[in-house]
Each structure stands twice: as C-alpha cells, then as structure tokens.
Design a protein around this nucleic acid. Structure first.
Lengths: 231, 231
DNA sequence: TGTTCTTGTCTACATTGTAGACCTACAGGG
DNA sequence: CCCTGTAGGTCTACAATGTAGACAAGAACA
C-alpha cells in the first residue's frame, strides 16, 4: 500500500531537522490536523514512536515547525534607513507566511501563554532584530519597544486579514462571494453587500505597503511632537 | 461520582444557547483542549451525544463559541466622531478578548480558510459596523474598506501581542523574565536582555490607545495628501 | 573487547470524535 | 381520549489519536 508516496527518508539515522522538515511538509500540504504522529512516522518510513526521540511531544513538535518557518525569514543587515528596513522585513515576513499559510496559526497563537522569557530563541529573533534596527537608528530603547509593538502588531494583523481573504481559486471566489453575501440580510449588511466588487480585487502586498506607510507617517508625527511621550 | 460539580443544567430540554454557554465556560476555565464532547456532556448533565443535536460537530461547536463571544462586544451607535467611535470599539473588543483569552485563537484563526461570504453573520457584524461608521463619516466605500483593514489588522495584532505578554502572576513574571532572558546568549540578544525592566511594566490599554493614535494620525495625513490614493 | 548511550520498535492504554440504532416524550390531528 | 410522527436524548461501537513503558539494535567510547 501507499506505493505512490515518496519514500521520503528510509536511510540512516533521523535528526531533528529532518523530522521537523517532514512535519512541515505534511502541514503545508494537508493542513495542521493531518499532522499526527502516525502519519509523520509513515512519511519518515519509521515507527511513529521514533518521532519522540526528536521532539518531546506533539506540542513541542508544532513549536519546532513554527520555529523552522521563522528561520525561513531572511534577515537583511543593511544600513538602509530604518523605515526601509522595517518595510522590507514586513514584506519578507508576509511572503514566508503566505508560503506556509497552515503554519500561521502556530506562529500567532503558539507562543500564547508561554511567558516571553521562555520562548525558543527562534521566536524571539525577529524582536531582537527590530529592536536593533530601531536603536541603531537613534531610538531610545523604551521607544524602540513601543514602535516594535505597533509595527509587529500591525504586521501580524495584516497577515491574518490577508489569509482570511485569500482564496485559492479566484473564479470560484467570485461565485462564492456573490452567493455568500446575498445570503446576508440586506437590512443588516448594506455596506458589506455593496462592497463585493472591491472585495474581489484584493492586493495583499499593496495593502500591507499602504498600511505600513500609514503607520510610519503616524509614528513620525507622534515622535516629532512629543519625543518622550511614551516612557 | 462527580458529586462536587455544579449540576449545571439538569432541567428541561437543551437548546443551542445553553450548550454554547456551557462550552464557553469550559473553555474559559480550562482552556480549549479541555472542551471535549464528553466533558461538555458531563457539564450539561447529559449524554455526550446530546450535544450533536445542537451542533453539527466539534468544529461547528467551536465556531459557535466564537460567535457567542463576539456577541459580547457591545455596539455603541452614537454619532460621535468616527475616530472616537473606532477607538471605543477597539477598547471594547480588547476588553472582551481579555475576558476570554482562550477563545482568541478561535476568533483569529477560526474563520481562516472559510471564504468571507460563507462566514456566520456574527463574525461579519464588526466589519459591517465599522464600514457603516466610516461611510457615514464621509469616506468613499472603497476607502472605508481600506481603513477598516488597517484598523482591524492593527487591533487583532495588538490583542495577540498583549495576550502574549500577559502573565497572570506578575510576581512570578519578574522571576520568569529574568531567568528566561538570562538564558539567551548575550551576544545574540543584547537589546532584548537590556529591556527586561520595560517589559515588566506593560500597560496594554495604554499601548493600544497609543497605537490607535498613531494609526489615526497616519491615516489623517494619508487622506489629506491624496484623497484618492487608494482605489 | 565490553559498556553505556542513543535511537528505533513494539505493545498497550486511555481518550477522543462521531456514526447508527434505539428509546422516550411530547406535539398535534383524529 | 388515543395514535402517530418527530425532535431530543441515550447507548453502543469503532477507528484514530497521543503517549507511557519495556525491549532491541547498533554506535560511541572505555
């Protein structure tokens, strides 16, 4: 049975990277729910329990997958203007997330209720990097933190938004949208129903870019009026 | 057995609201994983399978819980300035989310990959409402949509951020943070480690408010320079 | 060589979501 | 009043899941 499958790794020993890689592949192709220890074992050509030698349990495995994806985010260390760096970073992050949409829930809610200090290093690296950018650009450390929060919050929010509006088949999308919106009572949802055409031509990249522009403009204004408004 | 439990509802017939209510209570108190059909049945004093008469399956049940929480968001229909309305709405949303932190993952990723048109009405109501506010304030419908996206994206992002930094016991927090940060290699995480004190005094409400201020400032600037930059 | 540690395997168990058949009680029509 | 249909509740059963614990095989090192 399962002759059609790629015999992924029948060779030598397993290591954590391989296991996580296979897990990620599974999640990417068949969704989060499809990642069970047994299926993962099968994908690796090993006994399901073999996985436990490389990940403490399912949760830890998922955290590992998330970290693996975060590692895909390329880090540019120019000395371009900090605004440019932030912008670039946001787009890069977005691209990675779109490449692994099924993992995004992990990125976003995984570290939830894991105290900041105890998170795996991979999760904290973006934070550190942005702090670096801002501080090098002359921000006081405290302000840098606030800016980071605004920026990153917005970024995550946008990605979630975009994933929600993302539909694979745009042709089917139109039908679905029309059908779906017509189901809504006109009295309760007048604006939404009228906006169907605009909803169809969603350009995530552009939207993100505009959003960042807005945010940066606001930031600039905020910082010039009261340089120490925060603290 | 289970004599110590509150005999929740032993009475008459069940209805969807009661079931969802019990489910929400379970999630609030013991987390998402604790919501199993069997435990829910027990909390209702019924056979687990009884739940299936009021919710198609577990997923649908969770969606129902999410909707129930969204219904808690109070809707103000002043004719205050739109900025004030948005601000108020954001704070209200934040408050509700903090009241049900365990449900937030559902709110944020639940509708993921459910085409916008097919989502339950409860999920779409905030969107419609914000659109209404903005359009009544004079925005072109298309612009309203963009503003909504920026605003809501930021809001969700902030809430996720805040939940990640939220720790129940602030005393333990300090210890954890210190311990956790010291584990990080100083060379790789210099800024983060220095920011420990600032991380400790996180004021979510204030942070959200500042963020919105920034966003609105940026929005104003954006809209006055090019009134039709979007479209 | 012998010893210890790492990795993979096997078995076993409790827990999960849910299908399907059954039962029960009440609604509404005669 | 009884008869009957239907919605709600229960019981049983099954396949799938995460994972503990005992064991085996082979690598690393003495």
């Amino acid at each position: 049975m399962n002759a059609g499958m790629q015999a992924q790794e029948g060779s030598g020993r397993l290591n954590r990277r391989t296991v996580l890689g296979a897990a990620l592949e599974l999640v990417d192709e068949h969704g989060l729910d499809a990642l069970s220890m047994r299926r993962l074992g099968q994908a690796l050509g090993r006994d399901p329990m073999a996985v436990y030698r490389h990940a403490a349990n399912r949760k830890e495995l998922l955290a590992g997958v998330a970290e693996l994806v975060l590692d895909e985010v390329e880090i540019f260390t120019d000395d371009a203007h900090w605004q440019i760096q932030l912008r670039r970073m946001a787009h890069e992050m977005r691209r990675v997330c779109l490449r692994h949409p099924n993992v995004v829930p992990l990125l976003v809610t995984g570290p939830l209720s894991t105290p900041l200090g105890l998170r795996p290093a991979g999760t904290l690296r973006p934070l550190e990097q942005i702090l670096g950018i801002l501080i090098r650009a002359g921000f006081a450390p405290g302000d840098a933190l606030h800016v980071y929060r605004a920026f990153y919050g917005f970024l995550y929010g946008h990605i979630l938004n975009e994933l929600q509006e993302l539909i694979v088949d745009p042709e089917e999308n139109e039908a679905l949208l029309q059908l779906g919106l017509q189901r809504l009572p006109l009295r309760e949802f007048p604006h939404l129903r009228r906006l169907a055409p605009e909803l169809l031509e969603y350009d995530g990249e552009h939207e993100l870019d505009q959003g960042i522009t807005i945010l940066l403009a606001g930031l600039g204004q905020q910082l010039e009026t009261t340089s120490e408004a925060y603290t």
